[in-house]
């Protein structure tokens, strides 16, 4: 309900051609030289390395695993989680480091807001761009999963939109957080938080393995919902629980976008 009304509110404040212009600026920057590509490529490898070292390596020690009545190899269990992590970190890197740099140092948005473009259009445009980046990681990662026999082509196809939603929601969250950053020192906190989510969100072991209190705590955090959704669709265990995951992530998109655009207004339109 609240999500829907916020979404309607956002839609009313956005002119598609201006959002497209905000995205186009980033496409232009991408064409400008190798610097951006280095960032782009390096961000992709981390989850892939984890998949190989822990999923395959540690997986050989762990053996098979049974989740929701379905038996699978440990690598098959870990792979969808790494996919979700990949989508998350792709989008997040864009809306934290790059967004913050444009906001605070390059004064990009100051120049943009002197034109008819409004804060919400900046936020939506930057978010869409982060989804493009997250989506690129997702597609490549899914290709690797299929090639390694860690997902069926059908499972990969089903997981694709889910992973895109993961990128969208974490991109939005990252942008909201960026508007609160005071300087680069705050990024250490962000990295630590991101790493904690990465370790405990049902990525490397089912959350049921933790004490009940911890399990509930994990179920309140966003990457858990992302992993559950992507894994459910990738391995074909589909239940009503997935709707809860989708609702959680959609709410995160709406609330974060609304917050980010309000903050941009406060920061730049004083």
């Amino acid at each position: 309900m609240v999500t829907a009304s916020i979404a309607a509110n956002i839609a009313a404040r956005v002119e598609p051609s201006r959002v497209a212009a905000v995205v186009a600026r980033n496409v232009g920057a991408l064409r400008s030289g190798p610097a951006y590509w280095v960032v782009l490529v390096s961000g992709f490898f981390e989850p892939l390395l984890y998949l190989l070292s822990i999923g395959v390596g540690v997986g050989a020690l762990v053996g098979d695993l049974t989740v929701d009545g379905q038996t699978m190899s440990y690598a098959q269990f870990v792979a969808p989680a790494m996919l979700a992590v990949s989508a998350m970190s792709g989008a997040l890197a864009e809306t934290t480091y790059n967004f913050f740099f444009k906001l605070k140092y390059m004064k990009t948005f100051e120049a943009v807001l002197a034109t008819p473009v409004r804060p919400m259009e900046v936020a939506v445009g930057e978010l869409l761009w982060s989804v493009v980046r997250g989506g690129l990681y997702t597609v490549i990662f899914l290709g690797i999963m299929v090639a390694f026999g860690l997902a069926t082509p059908l499972g990969a196809l089903a997981a694709l939109p889910a992973a895109m939603l993961v990128g969208l929601s974490f991109g939005a969250l990252g942008m909201a957080v960026s508007t609160l950053m005071r300087g680069w020192q705050d990024f250490d906190l962000l990295t630590t938080g991101q790493f904690a989510l990465f370790l405990f969100s049902g990525t490397f072991s089912p959350v049921q393995n933790y004490p009940a209190g911890v399990e509930i705590l994990i179920q309140l955090t966003p990457l858990y919902h992302a992993v559950e959704l992507v894994r459910g669709l990738a391995i074909g265990v589909i239940g009503p629980g997935l709707l809860v995951n989708v609702a959680y992530l959609l709410a995160m998109v709406a609330a974060s976008l609304w917050f980010a655009s309000r903050r941009l207004e406060r920061l730049l339109l004083e």
Binding site: A24, R25, G28, M106, T108
Partner: peptide, 20 residues
């Protein structure tokens, strides 16, 4: 507040798009 990621020309063409 020119855009250092873009060329001189792109600074103008990109800006033009913000105006639709």
């Amino acid at each position: 507040n020119l855009d250092p990621d873009l060329t001189v020309r792109e600074n103008l063409t990109t800006y033009a798009r913000y105006f639709g």
